[in-house]
Structures are given as C-alpha cells and as structure tokens.
Design a protein around this nucleic acid. Structure first.
Lengths: 220, 220
DNA sequence: GTTTTATTTTAACATATTCCAACAAATAAA
DNA sequence: TTTATTTGTTGGAATATGTTAAAATAAAAC
C-alpha cells in the first residue's frame, strides 16, 4: 500500500508535490483522473488521499464519496473553488480538510505530517482495560498478559482502533482475512467467540465486545 | 468532561460560537485566558479545544504546547495572524488545524463535527429528546439508552434527518427497505407502531412521530 | 516426520427480527 | 349516517442472524 495517493490533473503541480512528499519519506502514487484514482485505490489502497476537485472526467466530490464507501482513509480536498457550499459539501462527504488553491506546499505537507502522526504513529492502542502493543503484538487484559493468536490480535486491534463504531461483519472479515465470501463469515463468529472468552465477556451480557444486530460488532 | 473548551477573549465571539455548538448537541466551556484554560483542562478535561492565539496573558502557542504535554486532545487554533511561520509552528506543536480570523462559523462547525466523528465515533442527529449516534448505532430517548433494531434505527434516522418534513410512506419504505413493492406498506405501519411504543408516543396524541393523513409520517 | 498449535469448516442450536394476516379503529367521502 | 379507505394493533409464523462445540484441515514447531 502506498502512503499517499495524489489525484491531480495538473502534471506540473503533482510532480512538484510528489517530489516534496518523497523527500519527507512517503511513498507516493499519482493519477490524473477520478476513474484511475478509484481503480488504484481499490487495487492497492492508500493511507491518505490528496484529491483535486476539478478533474477531467468525474467530479472530485463523486470520487470522495466513492472512496468513503470503501474506507475511512483521510482525504484532503484541494480546489480552486472557494464557495462555502463546496467546502461544507466536502466536509459532509467526510473529507478531512479543504485546501484552497493556490496553496503553500509547506503548509500542505505540515498538515499531511500531522495526519500521519495522529493516525498511523500509534504503537499502543487501548480501550476499557484492554491494551494492545501493535509493535510487539502483545496484549494485556485488565493488567494481565494474554496470549492472542495473530488473527485474534488483528481482529481485536481493528475493533479497538474503531472503538465505539459499529463495524460491519463484511468489513471486519475483509480487513482481517482479505476476501469476502458470505459463507466465510462463520469464521469471524468463531474468532469473535474466542475473543470474548479471552476477554471474559459473556455474549448475552457483553460489556466490551458487543454485537450490533444486523450490522456486526463494536468494542466499547 | 466537557466536549469543547473554547479559549477566546473576545466575549461576543465566544458566546456566538458557544450557542452554535450547543445547538449541535455539544457541551461547551468557555474561558478568556490561557491560565484559566490550562486550569480548566487539568481539572475537567475536554474532548476538543478551540484556541485563540492572541490572549491577554500567555501566548496561545504556549498554551497549545502545555495542553499537548498532558493529552493528545484535538486542538483547533484560531488566529488573526496569517504568517506562514505561525501556521507551521502551530502544526509543529501538534495543532490539528489553523483557522484564520475572521472565519465562517459554519465551516468551523463542520470541521469540529468531522473531528468528533473521526476521533470519537460520534455523529449525532437529534430531535425533541431523541438522539441517534449514526456511527455506534445507538439511540437515546430522553437521556436513556434504548435498543432499536436495525430497521427501526434506519427508519427513525431517516425521519429525524428530515424532521418537520412530512415523508411519503412510499418514500420511507423505499429508502429503508430498498425495494418498492407497494403492497407491503403494512410492514411500515408495524414498524412505525413499534417505534411509537419505544418513543412512548401514543398515536392518538403523538408528540413526536406524527401521522400525516394521506401522505405518511413526520417527526417533530 | 511427528507433534503441537492455529485456523477453518461444518453443523446443530439459540435467538432476534421481520413479515404477514386478520382485525380494529379512525378518517374522509358519499 | 353509511360506506369506503386509510391507518393502527396484535400475535405468531417465517426468516434471518448469532452462538457454540467439535471435527477437519492447514501451518508451524520440534
């Protein structure tokens, strides 16, 4: 997965931005149209998207909303449009920021660095007595070390990273296992079951790993 | 813990902002100096800080860096200074955004809502004592948690998002169930009925979920 | 190559939700 | 007032969804 996907039809600008970002140590992919952006994102994913609004094919807003359907990757919208409506629309679609062109490239980079730091530099995540060390892959529950298998760990990490959010079963399975055939959701159930045992959670009266009927699961 | 701590010495501006944010369902505290901000934050905490740079006592940047020592609460810096150096410095200190004065209050609120959604998994819609969190899929009625099934939740969310507007039954059914078999509107009645029970609404004298004869329903 | 451990599959079981159908009540039209 | 139409109510059947245990497979360790 590349760090940053730049969607920008101004070749000169995108080349400049790419150089600067690579100098900061990020891996960068560039596309000049919305369709390509979606394709590349579906295929390889990205940790952050810099999205121009005025694209040759589809509208940038449409791209934004399509990306949001797939993942909650941070999206920075870049545009020469200055209307308030455009900005509000962008935030409503789930964009993380709206930056007017022409922008100062140092500021944009500072913002990107900030997002990366807040979003991806976390080594330890925790919620309601459960602590996961993403580096050593070790887990503590209520202060006591607990052995988790790798699938269990990945699943629990995903749930804790999104604590409070009801996550669809398809999404959970997809993220942890990589594919999504309906029949395989049983596998997810089994792992949820194991996790609950290790968490000491009774499913009928779960306190941490809750089922959200008709949707999936959430960690609180 | 309050949701939002506003650090701003312009009383008029902070009062305005407070009103707007409270209308969005956030709890808000206001202070007019850096020392008070630190004190209040240490004592009660906050989920997000809106921080003015030009304060009567200490510099806003100093406040920002002190807050960062204590927690990684999101900080939105608001300032009339437009120098690049100030902005870069703010991001370097860990500020989440730098907003130039004068700002559009709707944009600021959109940004705050976005942060709450991403960070705290809180996307709230509410009307007359009923609050739905679209991210965690949880519901509160008059301050008490209530269990809703997924169809009930979707239906109520649709009604609340369009509060005050009478929605056609066909539209409601279509939106929630996806199909459009007109004959099955009976199903909608049943769900409306359940919702009214959970809302504590008597259909003969409904206070929230009203019947609009010949049309459908509306939430007020 | 065997043993151990982790993971997946299978299938039976348990539960919640949704749907349906019949009827009751309210409203509008005749 | 009567009639037709729309809306409200109810219980249980049908369906969808969730849980669990155990066996089968795959992967890793020895």
């Amino acid at each position: 997965m590349t760090d940053i996907l730049i969607v920008e039809d101004d070749k000169e600008l995108s080349a400049l931005l790419t150089d600067f970002l690579r100098a900061e140590g990020y891996t960068v992919s560039c596309v000049d149209s919305g369709d390509k952006a979606i394709m590349l994102f579906e295929r390889y994913g990205a940790r952050l998207v810099v999205l121009d609004i005025n694209l040759p094919d589809v509208n940038g807003f449409a791209v934004c909303s399509k990306l949001r359907e797939k993942a909650d990757t941070p999206i920075l919208i870049v545009s020469c449009r200055t209307d308030k409506e455009d900005k509000l629309g962008a935030f409503d679609l789930g964009a993380d920021d709206y930056i007017e062109k022409p922008y100062d490239i140092d500021i944009l980079i500072a913002k990107i660095k900030g997002i990366f730091k807040r979003r991806y530099q976390r080594k330890i995540i925790s919620a309601s007595g459960v602590t996961l060390n993403l580096v050593s892959k070790s887990a503590e529950i209520d202060g006591e070390a607990v052995e988790l298998t790798s699938k269990e760990f990945d699943l629990l990490a995903l749930l804790i990273e999104n604590q409070g959010k009801a996550l669809k079963k398809e999404y959970l399975f997809n993220s942890v296992w990589g594919s999504d055939s309906d029949s395989e959701l049983q596998t997810l159930h089994v792992h949820i079951n194991r996790l609950r045992q290790k968490l000491g959670d009774d499913p009928k009266n779960a306190r941490r790993l809750l089922t959200v009927w008709g949707v999936g699961y959430k960690f609180v």
